[in-house]
Amino acid sequence: MLQEIILAGFGGQGVMSMGQLLAYAGMEEDKQVSWIPSYGPEMRGGTANCSVTISDVSVSSPLISEPDTLIVLNRPSLEKFEQDIKPGGLLLINSSLVDRDPLRKDLRILKIPADDLANEKFGNTRVANMILLGAFVAITKAVSLDSVVGALKKVLPEYRHNLIPLNRQALELGAELASGA
């Protein structure tokens, strides 16, 4: 198994922590993982993205130019990375903030209005990223949902651990939506 993922959005959408959760969950499952962020001024305020590799064998290159999966949380991210996805790859779109359809026809595409759902179901748009992550995990089974929930403890600072149940619910909602899709 080799799963290469690019996650992209704007600063504050939790793109970096989505990636870290995935990498952490993979590590806990004894898989080989790596995580690389975009860094510098563009991550402060502008667009943010990170790349995650989860693999059964050691990761040759942590740099991803043709991801198996692209998860986009806003429209500029779709525009930036859509062309790079491997043929037949997965494209997960936060349709609350991406107001156009993808151009590629050779992909498996799932659109989830993550911000709207997060607001309706949990009254908190900050967990939109968890809905998308839950969907990704359900579709690819790159890691288990339990591992992601377990990783929350590692990635969230201690004082945020009260948010774990909420995040778990959001992850589960995403997983449910994906299985129904």
């Binding site: 870290q20 990498a23 590590m27 080989q32 993982v33 790596s34 995580w35 690389i36 942590p62 740099l63």
Partner: peptide
């Protein structure tokens, strides 16, 4: 280099 400094691995 910047990649090695910024990336995360186990």
């Amino acid at each position: 280099d910047g990649i090695l400094g910024q990336m995360m691995e186990p």
